[in-house]
Simulated scan of single mutants.
Amino acid sequence: METKQHKILIVEDEESIQKLLAITLQQANFDTILAVDGEEALEKVLDEQPDLIVLDLMLPKIDGLEVCRMLRKQNIETPIIMLTAKGEEMDKIVGLEMGADDYMTKPFSPREVAARVRAVLRRTGERGQSNEKVLVSGQLTVYPERLEVYLDKERLEFTPKEFELLVYFMKNPNRVFTRDQLLQAVWNYDFAGDTRIVDVHVSHLRDKIEENTRKPRYIKTMRGVGYKFGE
């Protein structure tokens, strides 16, 4: 039986980078679609329905952050990997807050591009095939199959990556994880990644589930080590 090729939308206005991404992903057995600005990207998402979007931040007409925000506002949950330049630390954080699943900093290696795309697709595929039971801790209830989280009967909204991190924590209560372990387990990276992405997502989770983020009830910081989930 022939395996379906994943369709990747590359949104990049710099021709040399666009070509590098397209060739790299095609060699890795992905189908590629191209867009050079934010408006075209939004059209291609609706028309082509890609499996993943590689999205540059600095785009003509509509920038990458706004494209991400508009897609998530329309409840389009297609995984997004953002491309950022060095020094755009705040843009990375804002992008993650708007629902991006991951980011890469230019310049990047072709090997990293393919690995990141595979990791995100693998994670989202596993999420769709999950058959987990309801997870409960204190007033927090998570339904993995329905992608729903409730805190004392109030439904909370999470990005796909925040949801996956929370589920991983709740499936492993009272276990201490280093940032590298969380990066490997949740982001599926087989190489050294930027552990700051873990801290950003933990901070977002705390903002949503903790009554007092300075004295967290659920996600505790283990100084010099990492994090532990446990009521």
Rank of each mutant, 00 (worst) to 15 (best):
M58R: 11
V167P: 00
R146Y: 12
R122N: 11
I33S: 03
L46M: 01
L121D: 06
R111V: 13
P50M: 03
V113K: 05
P60R: 01
E48T: 06
Q74F: 04
E89V: 13
D51R: 08
R175D: 01
Q139F: 03
Q129F: 08
A100G: 09
T124P: 03
K133Q: 09
M70T: 12
I80C: 07
S109E: 08
I219M: 02
I81K: 05
L9T: 10
M90R: 10
A114K: 10
L46G: 04
E88N: 13
D102H: 09
D152T: 00
E157W: 10
Q184T: 14
M98H: 10
V134L: 12
V176M: 02
A114N: 04
I209M: 00
R123I: 07
A41Q: 06
E12I: 14
V67T: 08
K44L: 07
E14K: 14
G87H: 01
Q129N: 13
N75E: 09
Q181K: 00
A119E: 02
N212V: 09
L147R: 15
I76F: 00
G95E: 07
S16F: 13
M90S: 14
V36P: 03
R118L: 05
L21K: 10
L52I: 09
K208G: 01
S16D: 12
L59I: 05
L135F: 07
K228A: 13
R118K: 15
P60W: 00
T78E: 03
A119K: 02
L135E: 06
K73P: 00
S203G: 14
P110I: 11
M58I: 15
L57C: 06
A85T: 11
V36R: 02
G99L: 05
I76A: 02
I76E: 08
S137D: 10
E2T: 14
G38S: 03
M98C: 06
L165H: 04
T84I: 13
I62G: 04
P144R: 03
E231C: 00
I17M: 15
H6E: 13
Q139P: 03
I62D: 01
L151Y: 01
G64I: 11
D207K: 14
M1H: 15
A119T: 01
G230L: 11
L55K: 06
L59D: 06
E126Q: 13
L52Q: 02
E97N: 11
V36N: 02
E210Y: 03
V67P: 09
Y150K: 10
A22L: 09
K86G: 12
H201V: 03
I23V: 15
L205N: 02
E132V: 08
T141A: 08
L156H: 01
S137P: 01
R217A: 02
M104F: 02
D207V: 08
M90L: 11
V136I: 06
I93H: 10
L83G: 13
K208T: 00
